[in-house]
Design a protein around this nucleic acid. Structure first.
Lengths: 293, 293
DNA sequence: GACGTCCATGCCTGAAACGTATGGGCGCGG
DNA sequence: CCGCGCCCATACGTTTCAGGCATGGACGTC
């Protein structure tokens, strides 16, 4: 009997919520579609997975058995995808280094230089991801190792903090704060702040310093998925954005002015990689970053 | 990334044959469809699984990694399906006993009587399968235990031989061999013999006594999937069929005559069940069959 | 008894898998 | 050297199915 992992995901979410309606919202599908998928799964298995007593639903013993197994099955498949993707890179003696925007900054560049010098047969393949995407990329096998901006979900990964950077603020050059030499978080009280829906809420709040020291909430500006989109918004609207110091150096722009944000904690940058990796270059890169730091 | 187990099966067969064309024949799909499925899998993984050099194809290292994992994944899923289906039966205190045609014969009937007497809260659910389907039914979780006719593929199953039966021949009452009291395998040299494509070739050959003692091959008659279809053919054509002695007693028919087949080895019947079963009734049934034998 | 909540069903649409037909590259033998 | 066969890729039409929307029916609550 064949099955799609999508159906298994559906089943797990329904079983965890014990509600088709709630699960449908969580999965961004319509409730009837979900009902039909689960019903079809039951038909093909030849046994009911839920008891439907009018409004509420409950797991049958078959459903309980499948829930446990489906979770394992999904985790195994994710693992398989990662190993398969990694195998190709390892074969080609390539190390895919994931990062966001400026990633690990100058530390990353130095480490790369040392790496290419010490291992001339190997090559580094930098992979840029959208906000908050580096950690998931490691789990999905789209990168072998990554410079991860904290906070981040590091489940299933090994990691160590390798750098920290002061946070700076970017604004239009004509912005009234551009005249100051440095900016306080309190100065940003009424400034629309760029944000994203592609990263977890925790990530967004950390960058936005939400809540502010005085307990207030930021004013939210335009939504974006990555650094280019963000800076495009900053250069063309009245909003501002916060980024690490290296961003001020790497993303210069005539219409853009960067100023240090003095009274917030700095960005911590971790080097992270999957607990089980088939790429032997990962360990070597970690060594070099450790020595470079 | 989602995937259907069907695609994984496709990939495994292609990888084992190292040929899209051969794999397509084996999977009963057209070759272009197979090519597309694999190509899509590669696209979604973001890495090639085969190197296509004109005619021949070869596994990449990513392909090798996936092959191993996909085999495991498919085995795990089959296992999951079995456990899920079994859970429902175990919950209902039901033991699904698989068999083919007359299955375990009188031994099975006696064992069932003893079982229902000793465990009045439990119930036995007899499940009839087509030729050669009992063993696969155990692996698929469609039965908890089965009387399996040998030869059969018992991979993944525990089993013990519990009975043997003389083989008999059935023919139309007007058939010229119906006059004899017993039949020799040599008498069947020119008689069209019923056969099936739903069971493995090894199974069919064993029943047909192929090759015959004199080295010849049987004359093949009508194809069928189970005992009713087979006997329908025998009663209405000039062909004959071979079955165990109990079949002569359980499937009587005015147009049908059964005669013992004297010079062939008897049918051996095994009691078989999955190595890991969640149904506690399995062990009890095994005990009873052992004591009954 | 009216209303809200939740799951099931009917109908339509769009995507994707499948089959048939065909094209292109490669090797082999005449 | 050319034709032929083998094998994989591509093109196109068809069918199947997942998904969305609208709606019905059962149950609980106020």
């Amino acid at each position: 009997m064949d099955v799609d992992t999508r159906v298994l995901r559906y089943f797990v979410v329904v079983a965890e919520n014990l509600s088709f309606t709630q699960a449908a919202k969580q999965l961004y599908v319509a409730q009837p579609s979900l009902s039909r998928q689960i019903r079809q799964l039951e038909t093909r298995l030849g046994t009911d997975l839920f008891t439907r007593t009018g409004s509420a639903i409950e797991l049958t013993s078959a459903g309980k058995a499948l829930l446990e197994a489906a979770r394992r099955q999904l985790a195994d498949w994710q693992h398989t995808v990662r190993l398969t993707r990694t195998a190709a890179a390892a074969e080609g003696n390539v190390l895919r280094v994931g990062f966001v925007a400026t990633g690990g900054g100058s530390l990353a560049r130095q480490a790369r230089a040392t790496f290419t010098e010490r291992y001339p047969d190997a090559s580094i393949d930098p992979k840029r991801f959208d906000w908050g995407g580096e950690a998931q990329a490691l789990r999905d096998g789209l990168a072998d190792i990554a410079f991860v901006w904290l906070p981040a979900d590091l489940t299933g990964l090994r990691s160590e903090i390798v750098a920290a950077e002061q946070r700076w603020v970017a604004m239009r050059t004509s912005h009234h704060l551009a005249g100051q030499e440095k900016v306080s978080i309190d100065d940003l009280r009424d400034e629309p702040l760029m944000w994203t829906r592609v990263a977890p809420a925790e990530w967004v709040d950390w960058w936005a310093v939400n809540p502010r020291p005085d307990g207030s909430a930021p004013v939210w500006g335009r939504e974006n998925a990555n650094v280019e989109e963000m800076l495009e918004h900053v250069a063309t609207t009245s909003g501002v954005c916060i980024g690490p110091e290296s961003m001020a150096g790497y993303y210069t722009h005539p219409d853009l002015t960067w100023r240090p944000l003095v009274d917030v904690e700095p960005l911590r940058i971790a080097l992270a990689w999957p607990k089980d990796t088939a790429n032997p270059l990962v360990g070597r890169f970690v060594e070099i970053v450790r020595a470079t730091r």
